[in-house]
Design a binder for these strands. Sequence first.
DNA 1: TGACAGATGAGAATGGGTCGCATTTACATG
DNA 2: CATGTAAATGCGACCCATTCTCATCTGTCA
Lengths: 140, 140
Amino acid sequence: MTAETTEFADALRAAGLRVTQQRMSVLSILMEAQDHPNADEVFTRAKEIDGSVSFATVYRTLAALEEAGLIQRLNFENEPARFEITPVAEHDHMVDIDTGEVIEIASEEINRLRQELVARLGYEIVNQHTLIRARKKPGR
Amino acid sequence: MTAETTEFADALRAAGLRVTQQRMSVLSILMEAQDHPNADEVFTRAKEIDGSVSFATVYRTLAALEEAGLIQRLNFENEPARFEITPVAEHDHMVDIDTGEVIEIASEEINRLRQELVARLGYEIVNQHTLIRARKKPGR
DNA sequence: TGACAGATGAGAATGGGTCGCATTTACATG
DNA sequence: CATGTAAATGCGACCCATTCTCATCTGTCA
């Protein structure tokens, strides 16, 4: 934990952000999360380990961390934004429309094709996100 | 216009929706739109040709038309949803982060790869959307 | 044409997200 | 290690896109 703590603090400092208990809390929660919590869930979990964090600060912290590139905001349809630690390998998300489960998917091939496509139009990708709404195939 | 009008009406009826003046207005506006208007813009334009349409009805109509598959809702980041007539060929959207311009892009190849990727996981795509935030390449 | 389920208008309500401001805190400096 | 100061926080008010409520109106089908 100490190692992680230092790591978080360094990451914050490197991003030009002050190291505060609230930011450490939010960061550690996202680090340990196995899912993709929304702001409300981050807030609830943060309060368990911090008690004093406010809703507004969670939002401000999430915005700051996103700005710093430490986390990513995922905009799903018709539901509040979710967050995840910036993944090492870029990936997209597939939502099982029946269960709501979020599955991470990735394809180097697709990433490359997309990058080429955009380049051909004279642009360069700043970031991108693919959201697939899918349903489990019946015959399985 | 008469041909189109009939076409709209048929499409509505086929979707099990009553044919009302408001729905026709909204549909025609999206049909003629060269851009991707949001609900507010659809409302403003609709009022010019209909006068009586209300905001609530625009939202309800957009929801109904989306449900019927006649139009598509585009969820961009940090801004209200935009709408477009369901395109013949599926395509994604690229936003120029400096100008806000929305550019439609498509790649059969990517669509196919994506479909295979999802199928390999035992799912089938219900719908999907890729949003690319990009910037014009400097050296051009 | 009449009945009536479905659609509409107007405005209130909802809910995710942001802001203003008084207070607290991180941290650079002496 | 005390301290000044800008940045961060907590709290509640606020914003804005979207949805809901309900009284009224209108397509549609018999």
